[in-house]
């Protein structure tokens, strides 16, 4: 089976390589781009640990092949906060509310929530729970995560008003 050239922009940097078509996007990000913040939890699109933004929208990177992301803009957890500007309000809210324990599922949650609050600036509690239901956390019992999303939403709304 022939390898194919693939080129995509990940967190603002161009990553190019020759890959087998069967290489999943998550494996490309983790192994070819050495961006190991994106995790796999089930490799069948259920747990959400591998969620990344593809052209701005959250998607399961285990359910895409790297060749399908050719030319795309991909944002992983490494492209969200953490640099000189510190944590984003969402990440800070997870820290403030103990929204993570082992941290394995956390990158998927952060990516999901960043996109959710971008698209839904003043969510109801019901919308928050629904938005989180495509990501599985085995440690927290979701209490800290739900509180974190609420805090981040309130903070972002307050910032938008001022």
């Amino acid at each position: 089976m022939s390898r194919q050239q693939v080129e995509m922009t990940v967190n603002g940097r161009v990553h190019a390589g020759e890959v087998e078509p069967r290489l999943t996007l998550v494996d490309f990000l983790r192994e070819d781009c050495a961006l190991t913040g994106t995790h796999t939890g089930c490799e069948q699109g259920v747990c959400g640990a591998c969620t990344v933004l593809v052209d701005g929208e959250p998607m399961r990177s285990c359910l895409m092949f790297a060749v399908q992301a050719d030319g795309a803009q991909v944002t992983t957890i490494e492209g969200i906060g953490g640099g000189r500007e510190g944590l984003t309000p969402v990440q800070q809210a997870f820290m403030d509310n103990h929204g993570l324990q082992c941290g394995y599922c956390t990158p998927g949650f952060i990516v999901t929530v960043e996109a959710f609050l971008r698209d839904t600036p003043s969510p109801s509690d019901e919308q928050i729970r629904e938005a989180l239901s495509g990501n599985v956390c085995r440690c927290t019992g979701y209490q800290g995560i739900i509180a974190a999303v609420r805090q981040a939403a309130d903070q972002l709304a307050a910032e938008a008003r001022s």
Binding site: L35, G81, Q91, M95, L100, G103, I110
Partner: peptide
């Protein structure tokens, strides 16, 4: 938390 929140964990 800071490392785990930014993809800096080492599993």
């Amino acid at each position: 938390d800071p490392r785990l929140l930014t993809g800096g964990g080492q599993f």
